[in-house]
Nucleic acid binder design. Structure first.
Lengths: 172, 172
DNA sequence: GCGGAATAGATGAGCCTTCAACTACGCTGA
DNA sequence: TCAGCGTAGTTGAAGGCTCATCTATTCCGC
């Protein structure tokens, strides 16, 4: 009955008044239901999108995001750190990812003129072509599993929810 | 400008009428904004919750879900497959996870009486104690990064959104 | 009761992510 | 001009996840 975020109590723990540590702010049944619905649906959705993209194009969602970020930039190139931020990725993770994309011939590293420490990730024509092939597959998944399921009001609520959380979690 | 799900076009591709393949149903600017807000916020939130839980308790969110599922069940035991379903986990992933939890002494495998093929994962007292210690940490994270940020209307919308998507993505 | 299909689960290789070093370069102040 | 610190990025080891494969057991029809 009690679910997920709270410890299943044998009954509410005895509470002494004037506590110092503070009793955990457990979720009530309604909150649990909302939280679980959000958590499960988000996990299932992201998983599904990633799987469909990966299986139909050979590009994981993580790689896809890297390619998209590069493709949207003038000259199709970006500093490694900036790219990491845009992809919600750690520096290390991005570094590994770019190495693997480099092996596929989709990205190339270039030294940065203004900063001798810096590198630019550059999207190659092959990389752009791979992205062009994958994009219709991905957009169809997003339509099918997300937008086709929602009313315009729900889409608006989704955006509102997302933007509210982003203000807290920070665009970094 | 064009973002994420769509190929950044040099301009809309020429479209011949009577197409057979079907032009991709690209997202418009509003849809992209909603989708990105949702995607980013979900990724950041889940990441944050997982990190806080992992760093403060040594239990990843994935393991936490396993422990919670077991703790909620009569006898604190469950068939491996059912546990996998409850945790949105593949059989293989759960099998590996239970092995690791077994090494920590938090879970034990028992043979299943009714089905010689089956196994039961059983939460040990040590496992329950570990969960009891972690739960307050996790609930505080969920409060701080989710519920404290939202109005009651947004919580209701979150639940509605989640349940709508779950109907499509299936409780499996 | 027996042969074959289906189910439950384990296993290992390979890839991905994380974390903690580590290198290399730039910036600042004395 | 150089010492020290901060920033940019890489690297390798360790653990987690996926996928394909494998074993053991049950179920089903005859």
């Amino acid at each position: 009955m009690t679910a997920h975020v709270s410890l299943p109590p044998e009954g509410p723990a005895s509470e002494e008044p004037g506590h110092t540590t503070g009793e955990p702010r457990w979720l009530d049944a309604e909150e649990q239901r909302a939280w679980r619905a959000y958590l499960y649906s988000a996990q299932l959705l992201l998983d599904r999108l990633d799987r469909e993209l990966t299986h139909e194009t050979g590009i994981s969602h993580a790689y896809y995001e890297v390619l998209v970020a590069l493709s949207e930039t003038p000259g199709r190139r970006m500093r490694m750190s900036e790219l990491a931020d845009r992809c919600l990725s750690s520096r290390s993770r991005l570094s590994h990812a770019v190495s693997r994309l480099e092996e596929r011939g989709w990205v190339r590293r270039e030294v940065c003129a203004e900063d001798g420490r810096g590198l630019l990730a550059v999207l190659t024509d092959e990389g752009f072509a791979a992205l062009a092939a994958a994009a219709p597959v991905h957009v169809e998944s997003v339509r099918t599993h997300l937008f086709d399921q929602l009313t315009p009001e729900q889409v608006a609520a989704m955006r509102d929810l997302g933007e509210t959380l982003l203000r807290h979690l920070g665009p970094r």
